[in-house]
Design a protein around this nucleic acid. Structure first.
Length: 156
DNA sequence: GCCAACGTTGGC
DNA sequence: GCCAACGTTGGC
């Protein structure tokens, strides 16, 4: 199957591209939205490309690139009583929430701000530029992915 | 910190 | 199954 592309959001207070550069790989735990869960569980494949997006940041935007290294598996935090991500309605027999593992690929010299994404006509239709778009895991068209990579690598 | 947009919950 | 209330997200 052809490589696909994704955008994954995180708040820098929780995790940053620098954390990923240090850790090399990390488990993308804590997603508690069904639409995002379906992407994590069913659609994301090893080798897929990821735009690493930092939200609630200054500025918010794409900080770098990552890659899927492990496909969907049950998020263990849903079973941990007392954990912030614990879900009493989930069970090991029928897990509700899934995660993938990602690997650090590249940090951009500067974050590509959301405002720049919105201002670029080549990115018309990209999910993240849509108003009110809260989904934390989003599919990205190949052309949009390549354009964001180009912007991220461009000399400032 | 504000608040609009959105997803989820729960009463009926 | 509807939908109001509530909680969360996330840009600004």
């Amino acid at each position: 199957m052809a490589t696909r592309y994704w955008l994954m959001k995180v708040e820098p207070s929780a995790y940053t591209i620098d954390d990923l550069a240090r850790d090399r790989t990390t488990g993308w735990e804590g997603v508690r939205n069904y639409q995002a869960r379906n992407f994590l569980r069913d659609e994301m494949k090893k080798g897929d490309g990821v735009l690493f997006y930092q939200s609630n940041a200054t500025p918010s935007g794409v900080a770098g690139l990552a890659e899927i290294v492990r496909e969907g598996y049950p998020d263990p935090t849903q079973f941990e009583v007392g954990h912030a991500y614990f879900d009493p309605k989930s069970s090991r027999e029928d897990p509700r929430w899934y995660q993938v593992d990602i690997r650090f690929v590249e940090k951009f010299p500067e974050v590509v701000p959301l405002a720049d994404l919105k201002a670029n006509p080549a990115l018309d239709g990209m999910m993240v530029v849509r108003r009110g778009m809260r989904l934390s895991v989003q599919p990205v068209d190949r052309g949009h992915y390549e354009e964001v990579v180009r912007m991220g690598r461009a000399a400032v």
